[in-house]
Computed example of a mutant assay.
Amino acid sequence: MQKQIVEIAGEAVGTLMPHARGLRFMAVKFHVWPLDGEVYADPATAHRAVTAHIAATREAMADRVH
């Protein structure tokens, strides 16, 4: 398996690298650094995790503003 780019809303936020237990996420954008090094079973699972993390971060930021 080759490395794969993880894009959210057209923005590359990381890459998935082959790992003995699946695919290791390597963050390339600051807002997803907390996920750097996480291992996922497949690209779809990684994409869902990154999307959920970004949504949770945006929600937390919105709560701070109000």
Rank of each mutant, 00 (worst) to 15 (best):
Ala41Lys: 13
Met61Ile: 15
His19Gly: 01
Gly14Arg: 00
Trp33Ser: 06
Val50His: 02
Gly10Ala: 11
Gly37Trp: 10
Thr45Val: 07
Ala27Trp: 03
Val39Ser: 05
Ile54Gln: 11
Ala56Asn: 13
His66Pro: 04
Asp42Asn: 15
Ile5Thr: 09
Ala20Ser: 11
Arg21Ser: 02
Asp42Cys: 07
Arg24Gly: 00
Val65Asn: 01
Gly10Pro: 02
Leu16Asn: 06
Thr57Trp: 14
Thr15Asn: 02
Arg58Asn: 09
Ala44Ile: 03
Asp63Ile: 12
Val32Lys: 09
Tyr40Met: 11
His31Asn: 08
Ala52Arg: 06
Asp63Leu: 15
Ala60Ser: 15
Gly37Asp: 01
Gly22Tyr: 07
Asp42Pro: 05
Pro34Thr: 03
Gly37Arg: 08
Phe30Tyr: 09
His19Arg: 03
Asp42Ser: 11
His31Ile: 13
Glu59Arg: 15
Gln2Gly: 09
Glu7Tyr: 14
Ala62Gln: 14
Thr51Met: 11
Leu35Ser: 04
Ala44Val: 04
His19Ile: 08
Gln4Ile: 07
Ile5Asn: 03
Ala12His: 06
Gln2Tyr: 00
Arg64Ala: 15
Val6Trp: 05
Arg21Cys: 00
Gly10Val: 12
Arg64Asn: 13
Met1Val: 08
Glu11Gly: 00
Ala27Phe: 03
Ala27Gly: 06
His66Tyr: 12
Glu11Gln: 08
Thr15Glu: 06
Met17Ala: 10
Ile5Val: 10
Ala9Trp: 03
Pro43Val: 13
Lys3Asp: 01
Phe25Lys: 04
Ile54His: 11
Arg48Glu: 11
Val65Trp: 07
Glu59Asn: 14
Glu11Asn: 07
Glu59Ile: 15
Pro18Met: 06
Ile5Ala: 08
Arg48Asp: 07
Ala41Pro: 01
Gln2Trp: 00
Pro18Asn: 12
Gly10Tyr: 05
Thr15Pro: 00
Gly37Lys: 10
Thr51Gly: 09
Glu11Ser: 10
Ala56Cys: 05
Asp42Glu: 14
Val50Arg: 02
Ala49Leu: 06
Asp36Gly: 07
Tyr40Ala: 07
Ala56Trp: 02
Ala60Thr: 12
Val13Glu: 02
His47Pro: 01
Ala62Trp: 15
Val28Ser: 12
Gly14Pro: 01
Met61Ala: 14
Ala46Met: 06
Ala52Glu: 11
